[in-house]
Write a protein that binds this DNA or RNA. Structure first.
Lengths: 141, 141
DNA sequence: CACGTAGTGGGTGAAAGTGGGGTGAAGTGG
DNA sequence: CCACTTCACCCCACTTTCACCCACTACGTG
């Protein structure tokens, strides 16, 4: 269960430290890929497997399916944290998310998002300003 | 599981180095053929077998099926990597994909795509700009 | 105040990518 | 059928990058 927000630095080699709270669930292996907006998504290997099979089973004849596959699969890397609990983000993923020297690691329950510090600021502002109460209604709270 | 994107050079002899992460799954043999867009598809021998049978089972009476068969089968070559983990791309396949001196190798989970550097740039731009969010809906996220 | 843990930074050896040269087999033409 | 050319494969050597290991700092806790 991934919860909380952490700001970590990224060094010259592209290494990011995984928050220690998340390490246990990611120790067995993880996959990073392009997310919805300008962010990266991190999945534990098991979660990823399920997701990937679903995508792989879609018909290649469809243009938009091919585009989607390319977005997700070519952008993905499977990694294992080193002894210090760090992973190396490939440069093309850093570029995609606009990550330069500081990364925000945000828990999303069953996966994790990575943001550049600036992009995260914006997202956070919108979150805090617009509290969409109807979303709570859906849950019966 | 083929994931990630790699840019490799192609030498005068038409040799392309397979990314080391992919070698294990391709060591037993592989098939290269024309892809859907301006790219080449690389399948591990096993995957190819399944795919080929499916195509072969389509009715020959259909014009478009015949055209498709010619495109896929006549364009296909089965190769084995050399000891350095390289394969030689026939010239007609290089021409088809517009590959000259740099190749992008992109993992697509159960197969691999080869692109010329320029063509890949374009594809990448489009997929990064237009995120078809409905595709995610299909997956139950 | 001492200790442990989390986060950060640097160095070094192995492996991956690249290029060239030599040898054997296959194809071509006389 | 033989000689020649060409191409493919294999081996060797070089460069560079990356993954691993070690060391340091900061912070929180007992």
């Amino acid at each position: 269960m991934f919860l909380g927000e952490f700001t970590h630095s990224i060094d010259d080699k592209g290494r990011v430290t995984i928050p220690s709270k998340f390490r246990g669930e990611l120790a067995a292996g993880l996959v990073v890929t392009r997310g919805f907006d300008q962010n990266l998504m991190v999945f534990p290997l098991q979660e990823w497997q399920v997701l990937a099979e679903k995508i792989a089973n879609r018909p290649l004849s469809d243009d938009s399916v091919r585009a989607f596959r390319r977005r997700v699969f070519s952008g993905a890397v499977d990694l294992e944290p080193d002894r210090q609990g760090r992973i190396v983000l490939p440069q093309y993923l850093r570029e995609f998310a606009g990550i330069e020297d500081e990364v925000v690691v945000a828990g999303m329950f069953n996966y994790v998002e990575l943001w550049s510090r600036d992009a995260w600021q914006n997202v956070r502002m919108t979150i805090e300003e617009n509290d969409d109460t109807s979303r709570w209604d859906d849950l019966g709270i």
